[in-house]
Design a binder for these strands. Structure first.
Lengths: 264, 264
DNA sequence: AGTCAGCGTC
DNA sequence: GACGCTGACT
């Protein structure tokens, strides 16, 4: 028996909007610790890891660990039927091949339940080691989203370079080149508007903007984003989910001179 | 060496939105006087003339006259990457085949530079003589835009007739006819909401609505528009750009009885 | 081009 | 909190 009651139901809606473009089907893993998901994108290049800790739920009952395979587009469709202020409860009976989403309006006037078929998905759950990163950039999530969007109108890839002074996002394309530099600034009043850079070593890595733009779908989940970079390690783009956990996106860098190396 | 710093960077964004649908490639001419453009539309029917006077820039350096050929769609793409409050600087080295647009966020935390390739465009720069017009109509730009849009759902051409009483916009089409009359009204408190008519001689001219609707893309640049009419002269549709200059559109009238005259 | 959603403003 | 606007998607 599984019953997870989330007062801030629109969190779930936002999570699904953030993930469904990248991953079509995935297993949600439910244990006493929390509600989590780990999945590769359909082209097996990027990885999403979501964690919603049990403490973040108003009520959390999970008798035994279960893994529920869901089609994320269908799940998103159902969650869209929840009002933004609705309380969402996820229910599943042991051994059942369905999951039920229940939506209660704040004043309890409306109660809806949506039952969705589960599916069998085989997925390797990768252990992701905690790593030391050369540089960790924290910046307003909207700014990061804007930069990725802007640069993708010029080129396909972005070079993210971190120095003590700031972080530089660069691209080049047919019509020209573009560089956006964000300076570290902690002077701003509000911490969610500040950009901070924790750098142990300068680093410069190249990524496909297409994936970055998918990641920024998670922008509504958090006002800030953290980008952790190390040479030869996948970048981690993390959006903290207040009081609950996080959604993290991993993406392997392109090997810098990949294109130039295509020589006989 | 060329370096033009414009605090109100979104002016440039608006200018490009206004011009890019009409003209795909054009030379921007830069002299000590200002930054200007003159170009025919792709079907050589309408003409755009833009002037941004040097005094309107916060900093204006132009060592020698240069003409920079740009693809306006690409330029618009790059300018879209500027924030609405960003300070925009246009830079070009002498003899360089690129131009750089630099965007600074108001708090200087973000600095972006976009380098765009220039192109060779041969264009005849027409001297446009100052003419005396039979009638000059000044009206709210949004009202003019609305009228052109409304009439184009009925017909393809508009007859603009000016009498002392007012200005009449008429069209006829398969489904019927339409006339919109705007009376002179200076009584309104705000000058930008008033319609004034300076008429030396009544005039009635016919124009293609398709072009008029392109011209009204400049509506965000000014709250008023000036329409200058003379028989046998191209109409001038002018949007003043505060403190800086103007954008003017010229369009030759259709010969009134062109269609009816197709008789043996 | 028209519709819808999200953001900013009043 | 509601409205209007701007940008994204169909």
């Amino acid at each position: 028996m599984l019953e997870l009651r989330l007062v801030q139901g629109n969190l779930l809606k936002k999570v699904l909007e953030a993930v469904k473009d990248l991953v079509t089907d995935a297993n949600f893993d439910c244990s006493s610790t929390g509600f989590s998901l780990q999945a590769m994108d359909s082209s097996h290049v990027a990885l999403v890891a979501l964690l919603l800790r049990s403490e973040g739920f108003e009520h959390y009952r999970c008798d035994r660990n279960v893994s529920m395979g869901m089609n994320l587009n269908n799940m998103a469709k159902m969650l869209k039927c929840a009002g933004n202020d609705d309380i969402v409860t996820i229910k599943a009976d042991d051994g059942s091949d369905t999951v039920t989403f229940m939506f209660e309006s704040p004043n309890q006037d409306k109660i809806a339940d949506f039952e969705m078929k589960l599916m069998d998905i085989d997925s390797e759950h990768l252990g992701i080691p905690e790593a030391e990163y050369h540089a960790i950039v924290r910046m307003p999530s909207s700014e990061f989203a804007r930069i990725c969007k802007d640069l993708s109108s010029i080129g396909d890839t972005v070079v993210i370079s971190v120095t003590k002074e700031g972080v530089k996002f660069s691209t080049r394309g047919d019509i020209g080149n573009a560089n956006v530099v964000c300076r570290q600034n902690t002077t701003v009043d509000k911490p969610e508007e500040s950009t901070t850079i924790e750098m142990h070593e300068p680093v410069s890595l190249t990524f496909a903007l297409r994936y970055m733009n998918s990641f920024t779908k998670a922008t509504p989940l958090s006002s800030t984003v953290t980008i952790s970079l190390s040479s030869e390690l996948p970048v981690v783009v993390e959006y903290k989910i207040a009081e609950m956990g996080y959604i993290r996106f991993y993406l392997a860098p392109k090997i810098e001179d990949e294109e130039e190396d295509v020589k006989p």
